[in-house]
Amino acid sequence: MIAALRRIRSEVLGINRRNHGYLFAYNPRARYRVVDDKQATKVALAAGGVRAPSLRHVCEAQWQVRRLAARLAAEREFVLKPARGAGGAGIVVVVGRRGDRFVKASGATLRARDLEAHACDVLAGAYSPGGRADRMLVEELVVPEPVLGAFSYRGVPDVRVLVFRGVPVLAMVRLPTRRSDGRANLHLGGVGVGVDLASGCTTFAIQAGHPVRVHPDLGRMLTGVAVPAWPEVLDLAVRAADAVGLGFLGVDVVLDERHGPLVLELNARPGLGIQMANRRGLRPLLERVARASLPVSAGERVALGRALAYDCGSSR
């Protein structure tokens, strides 16, 4: 037990150290704006040539809410997102229609009125930090590819890649569960599965801070699954980090059936649960990346990250 605590103390990255050692040091204050606003993120990613789900509509003012239903009539499936929402709050996923009602990912139905009310909430800032006025984005719905899709209970699984100084250091697959209501966020009860950077295979899984071996709703073994298109996922994550100019961030990549890997969103204050899913503290990895002289090309940095992971993994 003492050994485990020692290990936590020396290897695990806590919030204090994350804030001081990494956020303050590597993320310039001015760049936060880009990642905290999903619309701005999309613009920056597009400028850097990084692919992301396409933006269909933006609802900026209260008067536009009335026309929302009409504009959504053309869309069969879509995702409503507050531009500044954090932690998955305020996201509504519509997967189809039943009569004039919208069917949510959870199976519940919404009337046009409900959607409008939700839009009003979003615009009034119900989901943005500090209650500031917000915009609502209507995004294309991602259709998960079958390999990871088979592991998620409704909703879309994604891959969270932690990128430090342009080098991927840790990754995990986030799987929606019944408890998380179709969303992939760990703190909502989603399952996090660590991914070995070198091989692209899943290693350990956690839910709500406790180790699990099988998906709580689907009962499938979570470990030893090879994530499809793994090199492209890492490549996309690294290029997304370059595009927004942040030194320490979490990149959420989804695997779309039609378009392949897409960057869903970026997080400038990535959570630390990823260490639990990998059973590996971030500090040794981060310290080695901080010391290393970095190659310029994205491809070489991905290779460096995979080599580091292999090194640290085998040294233990």
Partner: peptide, 14 residues
């Protein structure tokens, strides 16, 4: 340093 409750949190898996 690592927060006290973080020890608790990470200890379960680590």
């Amino acid at each position: 340093g690592v927060r006290l409750l973080e020890y608790v949190r990470f200890f379960r898996t680590m």
